[in-house]
């Protein structure tokens, strides 16, 4: 059983046609399952408690566009990185006061983030937004709904995901990406602390899929640029 927050395209989202969890992560896991003897089943859950759920053995692994961080390593174990991304800013179209992430701390701008993510950290530390102006959401979809309604001024989240949301028909006329990625982060799959059997299996499979170009192929399929 693999935990995931399926509001995070292109890595994981619910396909409106089939109601199945689809995306880069499920595809990659399916490729890995061919190499090691597992039957992965994705289960959707909320991100802010995802590591607690893994530590309390609700899941065998978490694959949910998770950045490897030292804080999270205290709670769970991570595989080798399988993709690198950076945080990006998205703002309302026509807001010419936000030209890069450095402008977020000015003008009392309200910045939406998803609770418990590296986007929250990046907004607070790298971009220096005051804590009171950082608005935390349970999922990034709610943040986009608020941004479109002009309830907040910007969103900070993983680059490929904000790029995906920004390209959606409901949002492409209202919001736009601002500047380039301003952090570098690696995604890994999280497993329960001490579960070396699963960890070694995942790492071996990831190494092979990196070697044979399968990961690069999936990145092209989902338009994920580093």
């Amino acid at each position: 059983m693999i935990g995931t927050d399926s509001t995070y395209p292109p890595f994981e989202s619910i396909d409106p046609a089939t109601n199945q969890i689809v995306g880069f992560d499920p595809d990659l896991m399916a490729e890995m399952a061919k190499l090691i003897n597992i039957k992965p089943e994705f289960k959707t859950t909320s991100f802010d408690t995802i590591f607690e759920a893994l530590a309390s053995k609700q899941f065998d692994a978490v694959m949910s566009a998770v950045t490897i961080t030292d804080e999270r390593k205290q709670k769970v174990d991570f595989t080798d990185p399988y993709v690198s991304i950076g945080q990006r800013v998205v703002a309302l179209k026509g807001n010419d006061k936000i030209k890069s992430y450095e402008d977020l701390k000015t003008n009392n701008f309200q910045v939406g983030v998803q609770r418990g993510t590296t986007g929250e950290q990046a907004a607070l530390t790298t971009a220096g937004v005051p804590d009171a102006n950082v608005k935390r959401y349970d999922d990034i979809a709610s943040a986009f709904a608020d941004l479109k309604n002009n309830a907040i001024d910007a969103i900070v989240a993983d680059g490929p995901t904000v790029a995906n949301y920004t390209g959606q028909p409901e949002y492409q006329d209202a919001v736009a990406l601002v500047g380039d990625a301003f952090t570098t982060e690696d995604y890994g799959i999280a497993v329960q602390k001490g579960d070396t059997e699963l960890l070694n299996g995942f790492n071996a499979a990831l190494a092979q899929l990196k070697q044979n170009g399968k990961i690069d192929e999936l990145k092209r399929k989902y338009d994920i640029k580093e």
């Binding site: 802010d48 607690e52 939406g112 609770r115 418990g116 935390r136 959401y137 349970d138 709610s142 608020d146």
Partner: peptide
């Protein structure tokens, strides 16, 4: 759920 910074909002933030 609509990000009003009341008690539970702070609790979730502290927990995460």
């Amino acid at each position: 759920v609509i990000s009003v910074p009341e008690l539970t909002y702070y609790a979730k933030q502290e927990a995460s």
